[in-house]
């Protein structure tokens, strides 16, 4: 397991002072498509509409513009809520942040070649886990979900359905559930339980993944299938 907080074996993971978020910055720019279109008179000039129709069209454009602006505000708010800034230690603030894999990759999957490589592993592992049809929770912790530029690997906690056994999984996915294979072949530290482990113990483990070596807490990420989960 690797972690910028010191649990990990790799002690030289560099933690930046906060990676930039160009995509979010780009989204922050207020853009109203209808306003842009209205700056191009040639697109509308041939339409010589009578006064009432012209006013109707203007009202419709204003309405559409309002919808775009409202949508953009909501999108920005949801992105900011989903991914708060890293704290001074390079960690997410305390909490379990639920996000789709696409959202996780958009936020954590870029910056350095190491991050790109680990992200490719994560995508592969997620697909293998999905093929088991038995994953209840897929949680990411450790240095991948911090501001570390070069996380050593990806740390994953899987909660599987009750009675799940690795032999029930498709053969290509069985390596997920054996420590040595997961490390050597998939480049990941994977911990798992099935629902035979009590809810309280599972929650205790999830709290444990949020606890740094200095006993401070940090945020971790749960990958969900859909935004609504």
């Amino acid at each position: 397991m690797s972690s910028s907080s010191g649990w990990g074996r790799n002690r030289d993971e560099s933690v930046g002072e906060g990676r930039g978020h160009p995509s979010l910055a780009a989204r922050r720019r207020k853009v109203c498509p209808t306003k842009q279109w209205s700056r191009r008179p040639s697109a509308f000039a041939p339409l010589r509409l009578p006064g009432a129709a012209h006013r109707q069209r203007s009202a419709a454009l204003l309405h559409i513009c309002g919808i775009f602006a409202e949508f953009e505000d909501k999108l920005r708010e949801s992105l900011e809520m989903l991914w708060p800034a890293f704290n001074e230690l390079g960690d997410l603030p305390i909490g379990v942040y639920r996000a789709t894999l696409a959202e996780v990759i958009a936020h954590f999957g870029h910056g350095t070649a190491q991050r790109l490589a680990i992200t490719a592993r994560l995508e592969h592992i997620y697909e293998l886990a999905r093929r088991t049809g038995a994953v209840q929770r897929f949680i990411l912790f450790g240095s991948y979900v911090t501001a570390a530029h070069n996380p050593h690997d990806v740390d994953i906690f899987l909660v599987m359905q009750g009675g799940f056994q690795p032999r029930d999984a498709p053969s290509e996915a069985q390596g997920l559930f054996r420590h040595d294979t997961a490390q050597s072949e998939l480049g990941a530290s994977i911990f798992w339980v099935n629902a035979e482990t009590s809810f309280a113990d599972t929650e205790d483990l999830i709290i444990g993944w949020q606890t740094r070596r200095d006993l401070q807490r940090r945020g971790i990420v749960e990958v969900v299938e859909h935004d609504s989960e």
Binding site: F164, D180, F191
Partner: peptide, 19 residues
């Protein structure tokens, strides 16, 4: 707790990471 409730094969695999 798990060694009492998991099937042997599942326990062995599950425990490997924690051990």
């Amino acid at each position: 707790a798990a060694r009492k409730t998991y099937l042997p094969e599942a326990y062995e695999a599950m425990a490997s990471s924690y051990l």
